[in-house]
Design a protein around this nucleic acid. Structure first.
Length: 1069
RNA sequence: GCAGGGAUGGCGAAAUGGCAAACGCAGCUGGUUUAGAACCAGUAAUCUGAGAGUUCGAAUCUCUCUCCCUGUACCA
């Protein structure tokens, strides 16, 4: 009996330990962060997930594990750590599920987060039907049906993000959870929208200001002196005029200045999704989600004046420690280019007496202005219709129609085809006054610059190709450059010629002079252009934040913040209405009563038969996905505040995010918009920092290692000269539908030969009759190819890539008819390939299963051990035995302290010693390395360090309590459950989570001697142990006196001897 | 096209100017034990994508080339 007892205690029972400590942390609120603390703050943030029904796979927690290690480390270092988590829970999948099934997205969302299982792992009664069948909404794959009587039915049940996350042992402060779709949260998203509406951007102060300051300027002096980022077509007015405007006129004008504004814009319309998409939601001309075609369409939409912040978003990148590739893509996205705007006057037809039209162009090369030989307008340019001559009208209209039909995708894919049409009109060159033909062409984009270019064929390849194609002259304005073959665009070698006052000038000087001359003429000025467009903020979707907006007389009005949130209305259908309105158009209770400040029935809208004065229609669009994620990091600081988005005290304490970890796919979406809103919040005095995250790390993707079984395919070749004169010409590939062959055959050619013989003998009858004839003839050669593999479930494959055929047959019924050809060892192996994890590739690995089999601590260590955090790397479950084995070794190291009663911490069995010199050396080496590694986010190398440390301490038979205590703390950020358990076994009653990080003491690492490598001409030949305090000269003479040295030299006299004390000796000669 | 990152035993990787391949997986040999597993001891893997340069010394720095990944693009 006692033997069994001790064996039980000895075992590392990770399931029990992990459950115990997860419960302890939850009950004791171990990771609850206080908003006021004497400790220094540290804010560690993860990008919050979208909770999908498919749940987590092992790739998802990678970043969370890294941030958790850092958060736990900072707690050991004495910081007050804020480490929250929540859900970005508005989004398309729940809405599309609602469209299919009618189930409210809020229900789907809460199932995906909270799951359908109770604490004991049984399906909650509300998800089980009378006959034991599980209700569809509780299942991961909605197309399957399952019953609680089925074996393994739980695999198909949505466990919920929260349960999956908890199982990995994160130190999140769940008191601070936010969900973007929760009205208590989106109340504040709506609040920010109102703040943006009530702000304008002053160029003088270079920041956002309250709209009231603008109104008072208008009232006192009109708008002629106002420098603001606003619409381009603002009319000038005096104070008197302003004061005489009607209220509606005033609102219309103010809308042209507000930071969020309503405007008719050309948008990316996706008919299949029934919504507009932002530029960053379109990949290669089709929607990012679903890959549907996207067309351009004019719609009245809310927009965000992010362009006002273009320069500050660019400048701010210098202040933050974010990855360079991410900064580069933001820089690219903002797309600043310096140049000039120039105005070309259209020469009016002689018959016309009307005033000349003007074409404004943007160019980065004003120095080449004398090289202009034509102008090109985008087909969508507003002047096209006005200036086209009657003779050219038919051609131009046909061209416009043709380009409109071409999708954006076609236009981008087809860069080579040159197309365009002549308008018949001419513009006047600002300096030479020569007439310049005006063309239209789809290589000019309406959305960039002014949608018009001055075409300089000698200096721009696209203009050059266009000119060649349409036989337009190509004047050369570069000194000593041949442009007969292609355009010349090298600014550094540019010297201008044939250009009047620019002759002989290099690029930079010519640009300056050209701008100066344009300004003199009043026909241009220096200009900085940004690619960054204002962000369209309306979506025609149901499952998003409703706008706090109603319309009076067509003008948008904000609902006062005290009446927020405006909650999503119930709708019958989640599709757009028959009249093409967004889904909220289906709501019958969706009007704003300004008398009661409540949402009321549409029947009461003023002007309708049963209408009531003061009741107005509410906005039908909802906000885009990025609205909820653009300030969530600040809301975490004070998430339960009912009266404000956050208290000034909380904001003052937490300030900003110290470490933000997430995927690089958010580079130009979330991370740009969040920076924009942060700068706005800063301008308006709500936050103290104008960048929200000091440091950001992009974790790499964990890819899956797919497994394939090979279909047997023979390559049949003709032995002899074929029709094309080659020997052994392949003439046919014969594929066996029902014969699979072990991958191991492909490693050994001999195996293949024997396989061919085998197949000929045993499986000939499996050939289709038509193929049989190839085997009758001796002159045919038979080779063997393995190009068709069939995905099989990776969980069936063992660490040596072998697969049990019976399991495989059990996994897929149709494999029962298949003949599997094993190799000569009787094994059947699979082919492996690295691919993105996805259900259809059967390579998804579920972290729950890893936790059950090896424990969360093994999973955490293994994910870190795989490789550098930022790098993409393949998952291979087989390798986890390495970190799991390490934990078992670690566990054994503490055996002397295991005792049936934890209260007595007297070690049993083994004599406990004071730390030896070796113990201390190992420990402090580890402390130094691990601390440095965590600071550098080099988590993979510290896992190795732990392994080395435990191997060494085991070899030393270390039983020193102080060493083992320190080691437990070191390991605790990585493997917190086992660390807590060992800490308790060492006699502690408190959680290890705030135990001070062990202090590194260099004195334990001081060495008295060094094993010097001795190199000859750079090649290491032998080593010699020498005292470290030995002088350079003594080392040299000692080494030279060695017999081994003389052997190496073979009588030669060294030319040079390099001695680097403490490092190396190199003898040259 | 442009921008960024990369290429090291069969695999993941370590080494950032000084002993290449630490650590782990897989492999191989032996031991112990088992229903299966687990565990212990040992062991091989030839040289850093190619070429040139700097250096006493280069995986590491510089240049050229090849290939791969990621982002982005008729941006005037």
């Amino acid at each position: 009996m006692p033997e069994i007892q001790s064996k039980r205690i000895m075992q590392y029972n990770f399931n029990e330990i992990e459950a115990k400590w997860q419960k302890y942390w939850a009950e004791n609120q171990t990771f609850k962060a206080e908003n006021n603390s004497d400790k220094e703050k540290f804010y560690v943030l993860d990008m919050f997930p979208y909770p999908s029904g498919a749940g987590l796979h092992v790739g998802h927690p990678l970043g969370y594990i890294a941030s958790d290690i850092y958060a736990r480390y900072k707690r050991h270092k004495g910081f007050n750590v804020l480490h929250p988590q929540g859900y970005d829970s508005f989004g398309l999948p729940a809405e599309q599920y609602a469209i299919q099934t009618g189930l409210h997205p809020a229900i789907t969302t809460s199932i995906n987060v909270d799951g359908c299982l109770d604490i004991n792992g049984n399906v909650l009664p509300e998800y089980v039907g009378e006959n034991g069948a599980i209700k569809n909404m509780a299942l991961i794959d909605k197309t399957i049906s399952t019953s609680i009587n089925d074996v393994n039915y739980q695999e198909n049940i949505i466990k919920g993000y929260r349960k999956q996350l908890d199982k990995i042992g994160f130190s999140f402060d769940w008191n601070r959870e936010v969900r973007t779709s929760d009205p208590k949260y989106y109340k504040w998203t709506q609040w920010i929208f109102i703040q943006l509406f009530n702000s304008w951007y002053s160029i003088d102060s270079d920041k956002a200001e309250d709209i009231d300051t603008l109104i008072s300027i208008f009232e006192n002096e009109g708008n002629s002196n106002v420098k603001a980022v606003c619409d381009e077509d603002v009319l000038l007015f005096s104070a008197t005029e302003w004061n005489n405007f009607s209220e509606k006129q005033k609102q219309e004008i103010l809308l042209q200045y507000r930071l969020t504004y309503l405007a008719e814009t050309e948008v990316n319309w996706c008919p299949a999704l029934g919504t507009v998409l932002a530029n960053d939601e379109i990949i290669n001309g089709v929607s990012e989600r679903g890959g549907h075609p996207v067309v351009r369409k004019k719609m009245t939409q809310w927009s965000m004046r992010i362009s006002a912040y273009a320069q500050r978003l660019l400048d701010g990148l210098d202040k933050i420690d974010w990855p360079q590739p991410l900064k580069d893509s933001q820089t690219n996205w903002i797309g600043r280019s310096e140049g000039a705007s120039a105005i070309f006057k259209v020469i009016p037809p002689s018959s016309s007496s009307s005033e000349a039209e003007k074409i404004e162009v943007f160019t980065t090369r004003p120095d080449t202005i004398f090289g202009v030989s034509f102008m090109t307008l985008a087909p969508e340019h507003e002047l096209v219709a006005k200036i086209t001559t009657p003779e050219q009208k038919a051609e131009v209209e046909a061209y416009i129609e043709a380009t409109a039909k071409r999708s954006e995708r076609d236009r981008m894919a087809d860069v080579k085809t040159i197309s365009g049409a002549f308008t018949g009109a001419y513009a006047e060159h600002p300096f030479s006054k020569e007439p310049i033909p005006i063309w239209i062409g789809d290589y000019v984009l309406a959305g960039y610059g002014t949608g018009a270019v001055m075409s300089v064929p000698c200096g721009d390849q696209r203009d050059y190709d266009f000119a060649k194609h349409f036989n337009i002259p190509i004047p050369n304005i570069f000194e000593g450059i041949d442009i007969s073959e292609e355009a010349f665009a090298d600014k550094s070698k540019t010297v201008i010629a044939n250009s009047d006052f620019l002759n002989g000038l290099p690029y930079k000087k010519a640009v300056k002079r050209a701008i100066f001359e344009l300004e003199q003429l009043g026909q241009g000025k220096g200009k900085i252009n940004y690619r960054l467009r204002d962000a369209v903020f309306s979506r025609q979707r149901y499952w998003g934040e409703p706008f706090p907006v109603y319309y009076v007389d067509g003008m948008p009005q904000m609902i006062a913040p005290e009446h927020l949130p405006i909650e999503l209305p119930e709708v019958e259908k989640y599709l757009p209405t028959e009249t093409g309105e967004p889904p909220l158009g289906n709501a019958t209770v969706w009007a704003w009563d300004t008398n009661t400040n409540k949402v009321v029935s549409n029947d009461l809208i003023e002007g309708s038969p049963s209408g009531v004065n003061g009741v107005y229609p509410l906005e039908l669009n909802t906000m885009p996905g990025w609205a909820g994620s653009s300030q969530y990091f600040n809301r975490y600081m004070d998430p339960n505040n009912q009266d404000a988005i956050f208290s000034p005290e909380a904001m003052n304490y937490w300030q900003d995010v110290d470490l933000y970890i997430g995927g690089s796919e958010h580079a130009t979406g979330h991370l740009l918009y969040a920076r924009f809103w942060q700068k706005f919040m800063f301008d308006r005095g709500f936050v103290p920092k104008d960048e929200f995250a000091k440091k950001l790390i992009n974790q790499g993707m964990i890819t899956g290692t797919s497994a394939f079984v090979n279909k047997l395919i023979f390559d049949i070749s003709y032995n002899g000269k074929g029709p094309s004169g080659f020997m052994y010409e392949s003439i046919k590939k014969v594929k066996f539908q029902n014969v699979f062959v072990s991958e191991s055959y492909f490693d050994a050619p001999i195996g293949i030969m024997s396989l061919i013989e085998q197949v000929k003998e045993k499986y000939l009858h499996l050939f289709e009759e038509e193929d049989l004839k190839y085997f009758d003839e001796d002159k045919y050669l038979i080779g063997f190819v393995n190009e068709e593999g069939i995905h099989v479930d990776v969980s069936l494959v063992n660490s040596s890539d072998e697969i049990e055929i019976n399991e495989l047959k059990g996994w897929r019924d149709d494999f029962n008819n298949v003949v599997f050809i094993k190799d000569s060892f009787g094994k059947f192996t699979v082919k492996r390939e690295v691919e993105k994890m996805s259900k259809s590739k059967y390579n998804v690995v579920n972290p729950d299963e890893i936790c059950d089999e090896y424990g969360a601590d093994s999973l955490r260590l293994y994910e870190m051990f795989l490789g550098p955090l930022e790098q993409s790397k393949p998952w291979n479950t087989a390798g986890i035995t390495g970190t799991h084995g390490f934990l078992k070794k670690l566990w054994r190291l503490y055996t002397p302290y295991f005792d049936s009663s934890p209260s007595t911490n007297s070690p049993s069995g083994v004599e406990v010693s004071e730390p030896t010199k070796d113990n201390l050396k190992t420990l402090h080496k580890t402390i130094k390395k691990v601390e440095k590694d965590i600071e550098n986010f080099s988590f993979n190398t510290s896992v190795s360090t732990f392994m080395i440390c435990v191997n060494e301490l085991s070899a030393q038979k270390c039983t020193s309590k102080s060493v083992l205590e320190a080691l437990a703390i070191l390991v605790s950020p990585y493997a917190p459950h086992i660390a807590e358990e060992l800490w308790e076994k060492l006699g502690h009653n408190e959680s290890i989570s705030t135990a001070p990080f062990p202090a590194f003491d260099a004195s334990h690492l001081v060495e008295s001697s060094k094993e010097y490598p001795v190199s000859f001409n750079g090649k290491m030949r032998f080593k010699i142990e020498l005292p470290l305090d030995m002088s350079k000269e003594d080392i040299e003479s000692t080494v030279m006196a060695l017999e081994k040295t003389q052997q190496q030299l073979q009588g030669r006299t060294p030319k040079k001897i390099i001695v680097v004390p403490g490092k190396i000796v190199n003898i040259v000669g």
